[in-house]
């Protein structure tokens, strides 16, 4: 990211020579590119038809934390879907007439009432943040997940034509996206605890919980700490694992050599995946509300 380059996308130095090499001699892409010489494609080169996807081996051992790369595909999809969510709901709110509502409006109002009833059933304090937060989380994750039902290579085919080598259209199959939302909820747990039961109350809930004696405070701290840390990790990774595994199984089904037999596996898995999509969005929302309500109540 420091130099504005796109991962695994290169630009042959001499385009004509590269194409001539490919068509005439039928050599492998690697050799043609070695012949023509290449450089990394940058941001500004996309869309001009000069970039070619090419994977030239692992450039060094990557670590698990790499703050210099940004996944434009998933980030772009999340921002796009967030904007779609906001516009859709504002449109429905503005157009709510007193007469007979349209189907879209009914659907949006059903979603709204569903989240409001869920929040009211679990969270018993007054808060202006919880209900919009849970609505955002539910609809946003549902929209992100539901893109998994499109055919696998549909969007990445069009993206490859521009020169983007990999395009992940299911944003919640990116571990960054889900872990980021889970970490947001984790920080909100702290904020809610500090606001509702105070710092001392929070520390007491961490250190006094399974055993109520001051002697066993370290033990309590270890147990409660593990349980506290497992919340964001499990929240984020659950969504990631479900979506990533679902997409991976779609890819594997698409790799079966006989194209006319793929539907026998594809259709049942897609039907099951519809359930998983909705369920995972709902579970993320419910667990958010449950964690925040557990964090803000006294014993």
């Amino acid at each position: 990211m420091r130099d504005g380059s796109v991962v695994d996308s290169i630009k042959p130095n001499d385009m004509a020579q590269y194409e001539a090499c490919l068509t005439q001699e039928g050599e492998a892409q690697a050799q043609c590119i070695e012949q023509a010489g290449f450089q990394q494609c940058k941001w500004t080169d996309l869309g001009q038809g000069t970039c070619v996807p090419y994977h030239h081996g692992h450039s060094g051992a990557g670590s698990i934390v790499n703050p210099y790369t940004i996944n434009i595909d998933s980030l772009g999809m999340t921002i796009l879907l967030g904007i779609v969510f906001v516009l859709l709901f504002r449109y429905a709110a503005r157009r709510s007439t007193t007469g007979v509502p349209s189907k879209l409006q009914c659907f949006i109002e059903m979603t709204f009432e569903f989240t409001r009833d869920t929040v009211n059933g679990i969270f018993h304090l007054k808060s202006k943040l919880i209900a919009p937060l849970s609505l955002t989380v539910f609809v946003w994750i549902f929209l992100m997940n539901s893109l998994d039902l499109l055919p696998i290579d549909l969007i990445s085919y069009f993206a490859g034509a521009i020169g983007i080598p990999y395009f992940r259209c299911v944003a919640s199959a990116d571990v960054n996206v889900t872990l980021s939302m889970a970490t947001g909820v984790f920080l909100l747990i702290f904020i809610f605890s500090f606001r509702n039961i105070g710092v001392m109350g929070f520390i007491k809930s961490l250190t006094m919980h399974p055993f109520n004696t001051p002697l066993l405070m370290p033990l309590n701290l270890i147990l409660e700490g593990v349980s506290l840390l497992s919340k964001p990790i499990s929240l984020g990774l659950r969504l990631f694992g479900n979506m990533y595994a679902g997409e991976m199984i779609f890819i594997l089904i698409a790799l079966i050599p006989l194209w006319w037999i793929q539907w026998t596996l594809n259709v049942p898995w897609a039907l099951f995946h519809i359930l998983i999509v909705t369920l995972q969005a709902f579970i993320f929302m419910v667990l958010t509300i449950v964690y925040l309500s557990m964090a803000s109540e006294e014993e």
């Binding site: 499990s234 990774l237 659950r238 990631f240 694992g241 479900n242 990533y244 595994a245 991976m248 359930l275 369920l279 995972q280 709902f282 579970i283 419910v286």
Partner: peptide, 21 residues
């Protein structure tokens, strides 16, 4: 049942996802 199934399925799904990776 479906709600709790989503929760029980969580850690195995994480393991499946990482295994596929």
């Amino acid at each position: 049942f479906f709600i709790v199934m989503g929760l029980v399925d969580a850690i195995p799904m994480i393991a499946v996802g990482l295994g596929m990776y």
